[in-house]
């Protein structure tokens, strides 16, 4: 490796990491939090068999899972202006990522809810609790523990998926790297560099996941 390349890599490192911290991470955190809210509501609606809402939930999951994330980004950012709806890049990305991830997480949470022994619902009724009280205090906490490893997986995927936001001009890590790469014509080195930064982020998350799983090991099984 020649000196020029090393200098480019060293100089570009903070320039790439910075948007990682100020864009990639906030985009992930905000989108994933919203996705979880969407997912919990969508999962409960299905689990509880709420009539019309359940159909809507199934339709939403069907559409979102059946279309590419990149296309969804284009529809919202480049498509909606045709209807006079203009969204800035960052809100567009948050909207698409949370709706997209929400559909996947909803299925994870629904499956986890199904796995909680049903008898606890009846036991809750028998001591006078309402469906929503039982859901919030008994079923959902257990389901979220079951779902935790899968949801962590989804989160890790999302960190990497945020690179797609470069396509709708969000100045996140990959977008910045593309610019630097085309300036210096060092595509291989710089794309490997940004890949390593994504790897670093995901490694941290993987560690957090195993720490969390230990913390959340099933109730009473210490």
């Amino acid at each position: 490796m020649n000196e020029r390349l090393i200098r480019i890599l060293l100089e570009s490192f903070p320039k790439i990491l910075l948007p990682g911290l100020t864009m990639t991470i906030p985009l992930t955190v905000i989108s994933f939090s919203l996705a979880l809210v969407i997912a919990v509501v969508t999962a409960i609606v299905q689990f509880a068999n709420v009539k019309v809402l359940k159909q809507i939930a199934r339709f939403y999951i069907w559409v979102v899972r059946g279309t590419p994330l990149l296309v969804q980004l284009y529809v919202i950012f480049y498509g909606l202006p045709n209807l006079g709806i203009m969204l800035a890049p960052f809100p567009s990305a948050v909207l698409v990522f949370s709706i997209n991830e929400g559909a996947y997480c909803a299925e994870t949470i629904r499956a986890a809810l199904e796995s909680v022994p049903r008898g606890q619902l009846e036991a809750g009724y028998c001591v006078g609790m309402s469906y929503m009280q039982i859901m919030r205090r008994i079923l959902l906490p257990q389901a979220m523990r079951t779902a935790f490893p899968s949801l962590s997986n989804n989160l890790i995927s999302m960190v990497k998926d945020t690179s797609l936001a470069a396509n709708i001009t969000v100045m996140e890590m990959f977008m910045v790297t593309q610019r630097i790469a085309s300036r210096y014509y060092e595509h291989l080195a710089l794309y490997i560099e940004v890949a390593l930064i994504y790897l670093l982020f995901c490694t941290v998350l993987t560690r957090l996941q195993s720490w969390g799983e230990k913390k959340l090991s099933s109730y009473g099984a210490v």
Partner: peptide
């Protein structure tokens, strides 16, 4: 009616997170 009755299940059905 539920307030006046208690129910004990074959499988206990304890809340597992409590």
């Amino acid at each position: 009616i539920r307030k006046k009755t208690a129910f004990v299940f074959q499988n206990y059905n304890l809340f597992r997170n409590k």
